[in-house]
Design a protein around this nucleic acid. Sequence first.
DNA 1: TCAATATTTCGACAATACTCGAATTATGGA
DNA 2: TCCATAATTCGAGTATTGTCGAAATATTGA
Lengths: 123, 123
Amino acid sequence: METLNAAESLAALGHETRLAIFRALVQVGPEGLNAGAIGEKLGLAPATLSFHLSHLSRVGLIRGRQESRFIFYSADYSAMDDLIAFLTANCCQGDTCLPKTASCESTDKRRSAKPVCEGESCE
Amino acid sequence: METLNAAESLAALGHETRLAIFRALVQVGPEGLNAGAIGEKLGLAPATLSFHLSHLSRVGLIRGRQESRFIFYSADYSAMDDLIAFLTANCCQGDTCLPKTASCESTDKRRSAKPVCEGESCE
DNA sequence: TCAATATTTCGACAATACTCGAATTATGGA
DNA sequence: TCCATAATTCGAGTATTGTCGAAATATTGA
């Protein structure tokens, strides 16, 4: 993930309403919620909601799938993982970061349980 | 960390220039860099740099300390940890999140190596 | 085909954020 | 004390973002 993409994702989450949407979707799981349900839950005007949903979609943090006449939105967990990996990718410069942030790796790395943060990944 | 604070931190990082500043500070370690060095490294006009530094300071992601006539800025690692903890705090709703994101905890929790994500922490 | 529902797009306005030259404040050394 | 350097604040202009009513599009079921 390049800096520009990361900044775009972070900016997308850096708005109270969008962050609330994203967290609601993260919480509810892969099935997601349809737009109307999100709007109702958070008290948003349809146009406003749509604006934020498309923003989050554009940067890849959520995705929508049509299901009958509803559109269900769900969080893209791997995008979130990538973002977190990006943020923590540099806190292992020597003894810099507190507890060696090896525990915060991207999904794949975490899966393989291999301790990282001591080689090429640290740049 | 409340949603509002998290959104403010994310928004602060959601700007290419500020993200670059923050990452430079994360990389360089706790000693930090003085303002001039940051500006030179990233090619920023003094006023622009100052604007972004104060933004990052205001939300608590960096801090400055005066040292002779320089002001050294350094990343606040615990603020970053808090932010990451906030983002991952909800991906453990049943079998929702991919590899049970227990590995991404806040610093303190990570230190104590106690596996979380199966009780009150899952709000 | 028609009406009802779900969602998005359009358009306009308001608010906020960004940039940067110039002026200002603060510190240290001669 | 005075000058040079480091950094911030001010101010003004430009650009971007957010909000939401109204209109448009899409899907379903009768």
